[in-house]
Design a protein around this nucleic acid. Structure first.
Lengths: 359, 359
DNA sequence: CGGTATTGGGAAAGCGCATTCCCACTGCGT
DNA sequence: ACGCAGTGGGAATGCGCTTTCCCAATACCG
């Protein structure tokens, strides 16, 4: 038994499909009161549900907003997803999800799928890259997005714009002041004049590179030498691996009293957590033996001990803004405030308490 | 400039729309080699993207799978979402997301929206409830789902079936052995013969109630008295609140040496984390002053210290199964193994080390 | 070599709805 | 009383595609 159609409803109500359409879905023309009631009753008794596909075809707009993330289970992305979802609800649209593991080819594919579904707008989260091996992929992605925009689509990119995308209109980027915030973090951390080391993602990842650059700048401003940079995977495992290497370095430079404490800045929270776990696994303590700081202020990680110093980013707001900017030429574009963040110093970077130092 | 259509492609290639359709989208009939090439070239040069809405209309199937969760940013749900997403990818479908905060009315609404979009299947995650105030909502939800199924839809429910849903075919539930696993957890924890207390969600939440019941049963089997149950919200804040109350209870019963240590079982990990945080905020230590156990084994929480004893659930697999079961009458239904879990005892419930006890 | 399968392409009929016309009817002005 | 704008409803067209159904051309059979 297939779902009932508008025509059936119309027949039951004894009116034409046109009239039924007018009463059931918002139209400029509102039929007479009594007839409206009849139609509504008929629809109710038939359990009529409008076919959104047909509506979309007729009106050429789908009420869909596409969201592209690396991995929906990653708290960073799921927080953004929540924001997008909220914006979607406000716009009376639904969100269509695509996960890509960050590969430009999959992203291109996802954009194509969204375009096929005639999504009204597309939000792309996840770090853009400038890696050589991604060049072709990025170019194709840019081309696909370009076509999508030319066909009337709107896209909101989080972080950096797509490399090579022409600044078509309908193309908005919500930029995150990664560099500035990282610099700020470095400034605040620099007060303790420790040895700094940065755990970064693979070279070419904009988010990672920006944060590294900012942190180095902050250090420089404070008159400190540039920090070593360890390149690793942009996830917990990468942080863990780097942490292991650093643990060895720390242990080797015994006795500790002769060297300054190491302060580790991981370019995101999950990497920082990984690094901290690695240190602990080697018998080292945070912040006693090393300070650790992250970036993002992931909500689920706030109960981590020692509490992680980090840079707070309102991921949800970022997602929401990307979605509402892309929504259309409403006043939103100018109205929404730029994204900001705040350095949050917690226990993981506290300077060793003199009295608690080993006697 | 609107996207180009199949007809345009056909005209450019000098063939009929029918032929173009046959070559560009999988059809039973495959046109001649040379003609296929021509059509493909034309499509390429025009940047043709099939209109999925029109396809859906014509084929009456959308390639969409709807996912309903309480909150996509909750790690529990995002893990499930990942599984669903994977299954969707295998089925060459896309997932449509809806978040409902767990309100049956919103869920009903979401089902309606999915039905309107002619989603091929719907996956509902999130605890079902039997609360009185939700009775009407549940009934409506059940009716809506029923209608959806009758119209050929397939639904996969995670955990308990919807209250009042008739067992239409196309209706699958992936059941999670919450009760058994909780009982097992209790059994293993019972060895230490402590005082037990359970932090549960609001009464009527199946997931919560099942876990409570199972835990009590495990306790009973071990010959221990039933544990007190504190009812609170099914989230971190609820756990924190309950933790605060318990901290007061623990502190009041000083000196500790006279009473057994308290073992707190929170019905999910985030509540457990909240409780642990509350205890710590009151100067209590886990596991020294109280043991804490959770449920779910949320990935992001694995680095929590002290490591949380819990019951591992492969959320991703659960999501995947729900999606593939609902996918269709393929052999999957019988083929997929039932969901299992494992009790994992970690540091948070370790028995106090005799030597580390206060002398 | 005639006749019947078989192949390969096109014409046309929808899929379910929105919407533009068009038409019958009412109420108003002068 | 006539013509006018205005109102409320229906017929018909098209959104972009799939899919019968149909027809011509080829292949194959005895």
């Amino acid at each position: 038994m297939a779902a009932s159609t508008l025509t059936e409803v119309a027949r039951l109500a004894g009116v034409s499909p046109a009239t039924a359409s007018r009463v059931l879905n918002g139209s400029a023309r509102i039929p007479g009161k009594d007839i409206a009631v009849r139609v509504r009753q008929a629809a109710e008794s038939l359990g009529y549900i409008p076919n959104a596909q047909a509506q979309g075809l007729a009106k050429s707009s789908s009420g869909l907003i596409g969201l592209i993330v690396h991995d929906i289970a990653d708290p960073y992305f799921s927080a953004i997803a929540r924001g997008v979802q909220e914006a979607a609800r406000e716009q009376h649209k639904m969100v269509l999800l695509a996960t890509t593991e960050g590969a430009p080819e999959s992203e291109k594919e996802a954009v194509g799928a969204f375009a096929a579904r005639r999504a009204d707008s597309i939000v792309i989260a996840g770090s853009r890259t400038s890696r050589v091996e991604d060049r072709d992929g990025n170019a194709e992605l840019a081309a696909e997005l370009d076509r999508y925009c030319r066909n009337g689509g709107h896209v909101g990119v989080i972080g950096h714009g797509i490399v090579g995308a022409t600044a078509a209109d309908g193309y908005h980027v919500v930029s995150v002041p990664n560099e500035e915030l990282a610099a700020q973090l470095a400034t605040e951390l620099a007060a303790s004049r420790e040895d700094f080391v940065i755990i970064g993602g693979p070279e070419g990842l904009f988010t990672s590179d920006d944060r590294i650059r900012g942190f180095q700048r902050g250090l420089a401003v404070a008159g400190l030498p540039a920090a070593d940079v360890i390149r690793t995977d942009f996830n917990r495992a990468g942080g863990f691996e780097a942490g292991l290497a650093l643990a060895a370095r720390i242990t080797a430079s015994q006795p500790r009293t002769e060297t300054k404490r190491l302060c580790i800045f991981a370019v995101n929270d999950v990497m920082a957590i990984g690094a901290a776990a690695a240190l602990r696994s080697q018998g080292l303590r945070v912040p006693r033996d090393a300070a650790v700081a992250g970036f993002d202020d992931i909500e689920t990680l706030r109960d981590f001990r020692p509490a992680l110093s980090t840079v707070h980013l309102s991921l949800e707001e970022i997602g929401r803004q990307a979605a509402s900017r892309a929504a259309g030429p409403s006043a939103d574009d100018a109205g929404s405030p730029p994204i900001t963040g705040q350095v949050i110093l917690r226990r993981s970077t506290e300077v060793a308490h003199p009295s608690s130092a080993e006697s």
